[in-house]
Every structure is written in structure tokens, then in C-alpha cells.
Design a protein around this nucleic acid. Structure first.
Lengths: 231, 231
DNA sequence: CGGAATCTTGAGGAGTTTCAAAACATGTGG
DNA sequence: CCACATGTTTTGAAACTCCTCAAGATTCCG
């Protein structure tokens, strides 16, 4: 049931102070001196789609910042049903539970090619007074993200959910967005793979979306918004 | 659409050090000296069902600990659809976003008669080094709770969701549990009020549950578990 | 004892799932 | 470069679930 393990590529050591998305991430408020005090390696990772970042029930003294791409957090019900409980986008942090010394609670898997930083928890702890608020903001983001997934992606008819997903896949100013496999779309929206596929196909026929390349779409934002709010 | 505002009853000042659920709450690790350092009033509140603890978009420099009862956090979609995104039980903290100086993000409303403490955020901030881990644990609980609501209460057929709700309404050792209004059951499970009502009625006919008194049920845990895991 | 909610029930229809098969894509080895 | 195997996406038809609408029963409260 679980796919083959795909190894992450180690990309090198990160230079946080020259990070592209500097103000999005955890270390936004740090001074150059603070960076000097980091004595543990912050690894730079690249994951292809389907690659596993970590598995539930495992533990590492590290959390991750997503710089680019898209990651899913999935959990399983006692009856084996699989559900994606959160979509992680650029700037978000994954694996915050490591700060409590706890095991990870989800499978974290890349949905699109993704770049991440692996930050050892001792680094965070050492800078904790500097980071206090920023860290809490990331917790806050996790809660908000979870509530948004419930509110927007698990409520209403299937076509509304798919529409809201397309609106969520890229910022409003971007016309194009990239989608992932239909099985994952289903597990995220709480519908079957077939319903996910049929709905996406229907949107294509109605030119609410247009498929430029495999799983790369151009969106009609007005039409999508209309559908998202109930036809 | 929103019900009438029901005022909370102010119950008195809390004595945290003699709290009934002492080890569940935020202040579990504090010493008597720490309690002495609290110079802001920690109010003791009692809410009847339907009473509003706070509204979304409003702000107070305070968070709340639920000692007894059940509270819902609800949000609205652009199209007006209402959704309960989290169920708050005894020991849980509500309104953690106040720690970031932000406005509340949900309507928080009592589902059952509830007892809470109102803790001013400066109290937490003053004790922050003592509380660091405990506070983070509460954030963690919030995320876990949100994911559990998505995973168990918004996945699968309606009868599975209702069964999982009944299993969640009280600890496994308790035979009886109390339920709230059908409209709220629907908003929590992502089904209509009618479906919620029909499913509860069906469970009664099949004696999976037995109604002792209005909205007080005796549960057949084995049967509920069987249904929850897919018939 | 009304009157207003809330809960229950029913019938019909829309939407989703299920099952099965075909179309398409991808990667491997000949 | 093609043939083939594998996996994903699409499509269709039938069964089923859930929603909609409407009405009746029940509870709650003034």
C-alpha cells in the first residue's frame, strides 16, 4: 500500500542568511551574530515527487522548512483509510512535533519537486529566546492550515472542493498552477479517485481550467470562485 | 443566522493550585512561588449550552482553559456555509492565538454546560520560561485535535462519522455520553442536519446507542467500533 | 396553553461510489 | 526504436448514499 521509499538527495549545507524566501521562514528576525552561533549543520534537501521526507512513528531531532514545492501530511484510520490532513506550501514548517521530543505523527511526502531545509532541534532550542514568537507563529500556521483544509477542502460538493483546491494551489496573481495525482486529490478532498478524476475532466471540458502540459493548468479564477461559492 | 448572545456567568477568581484537573492544564509544572507571582486575575467562568465564549475577528489579551464541558470552534466559508473545525474538551486550551496579539479566528461556543478559566496573556508571558514546553504542548494538542477532526469526523460514510463521534464524546471507560443538537452534529461531520438526525435515530433503533434521557446516551462500544471501521 | 424551536420521518432526485473496462503514459529490455 | 508490462487517468453504467424539500412529532419556554 505504501509506495517504495525514494531517497532524498542531499544538496548541501544551507546559507540561511542568503535564503531566497528569507522573510517567510523561521529565522527572519535573526542577526548575523545569531547565525554565527549556529554550530550544527542545516542540510539542504531536494525531494522528487513521491519521495518520503519522514514516516509516522519515527523520530529525528529535526524539523523542516519548505522553501519550494508541495508536501502532503497523511494519516491512516484504524480501518486503513488514508487521508491527507494537511498541504504544506513554501514558507511552512513541517515536523514541529520534534520540538517536543515526540515522534512524527504523519507520513510527510513530496507531491511536487520540493526543496527543504533540515534544521536540528538543538539549533532552535539554543536560539529559543530569539525565536520564541517566530516559533509560536509557525505553530499557529499549522493550526490555521489544518482548519483551512477542513473548512475549504472537506466541505460541500465535490466540484466545490476541487474548485477550492485549484484556487489554493497557487497565489491569485499566478494564472498557472501544477496539480498532483488523482489518488492524492481524492485523499485530500475526501472523495474517491474516480470522482476526483471525473471532476477535473469536467472542468477541462467546461474550460474552467486548461491543461497546458501534463498536470500543468491554466486557471479561470472567476469561474473557479463562482463554483467554489456554490455555482 | 448567529444565535442570540448569551452572557457568560462570572463565577469567581480561580485557585489554580487547588484545581481539580491540575495535571491536565497549562500550569501543571508550576511551584507555589510561581503562583505567587501571578498578579492578574484568573477568572472562573461558567457557560450554559449555546453561550458564546468569544467571536471571530474580536480580540482580548486572554486565552481559556476548559475544565469541564464541551466547546465548538466554528468558521464560515465565503458562501456562508458553517463548519465546526474543532471540538474542545476538558484540559484543552482555546484562543491560543491571543498569545500572538492576534484576533480570534473562530466563534467559540459552548455545546454543553462548561467551566473555563480565563487567563490573561501577560500571565503566560511573565511565566514564559517556566511554561515554554507546556505552552508548546498545548499548540501541539491544537494541531492534533484539528487533524483528528478531519481524519475521523470528516472521512467515510455518514454512519461511520456518527459512530466515531460517539466514540469520541467520552473516554472508553465511560458507558454514557451526552450529545448536542443535530444541527451542530451536521456542521461537525460535514453532513446535513437531516442526515445527522436520521443516522442517530437509526443507531437508536439498532440499539447501538440507547437514549437514557434527552441527549444522554448509553453506548455499545463494540458495535460503534465495528461501524466506525466500516461495518 | 400556545408558539417556536428542534427533532424525526418520508419521498424523490441529485451526487457519489462502486465495479469494470478502455485509453493513455511511462519505463524496460529486446 | 519498438514491444511490452505497469501504473495512472479517464469513462461508463448501475447501485447506493446523501441531500432537498416538505410535513408531522416532539420538546422547550414564555
Amino acid at each position: 500500500m505504501k509506495g517504495p521509499e525514494i531517497e532524498a538527495a542531499w544538496h548541501g549545507l544551507a546559507s540561511c542568511d542568503r535564503c531566497q524566501i528569507h522573510d517567510l521562514v523561521l529565522f527572519a528576525d535573526l542577526t548575523p551574530e545569531d547565525f554565527g552561533a549556529i554550530h550544527l549543520p542545516i542540510d539542504d534537501l531536494w525531494l522528487p515527487p513521491g519521495a518520503v521526507l519522514y514516516r509516522a512513528e519515527t523520530a529525528q531531532p529535526a524539523l523542516f522548512t519548505l522553501r519550494e514545492g508541495l508536501v502532503k501530511l497523511e494519516q491512516y484510520l484504524p480501518d486503513g483509510a488514508r487521508r491527507i490532513v494537511s498541504l504544506i506550501g513554501p514558507g511552512d514548517v513541517v515536523g514541529l512535533e520534534a520540538m517536543l521530543g515526540a515522534a512524527y505523527e504523519h507520513d510527510a511526502v513530496a507531491l511536487l519537486p520540493s526543496k527543504l531545509c533540515r534544521i536540528p532541534t538543538p539549533v532552535i532550542q539554543r536560539l529559543s529566546d530569539k525565536l520564541g514568537q517566530a516559533l509560536m507563529r509557525k505553530w499557529h500556521d499549522s493550526v490555521r492550515n489544518a482548519h483551512a483544509c477542513l473548512r475549504e477542502l472537506s466541505t460541500g460538493a465535490a466540484r466545490q472542493r476541487v474548485a477550492r483546491l485549484f484556487l489554493r494551489l497557487a497565489p491569485p496573481e499566478a494564472r498557472r498552477c501544477r496539480l498532483f495525482g488523482r489518488e492524492d486529490v481524492g485523499a485530500l478532498l475526501g472523495v474517491t479517485t474516480e470522482t476526483a478524476s471525473k471532476t477535473v475532466a469536467e472542468f477541462k471540458r467546461q474550460s474552467v481550467i486548461r491543461e497546458i502540459a501534463p498536470n500543468l493548468f491554466e486557471r479561470d479564477l472567476a469561474a473557479l470562485t463562482r463554483i467554489a461559492d456554490g455555482d
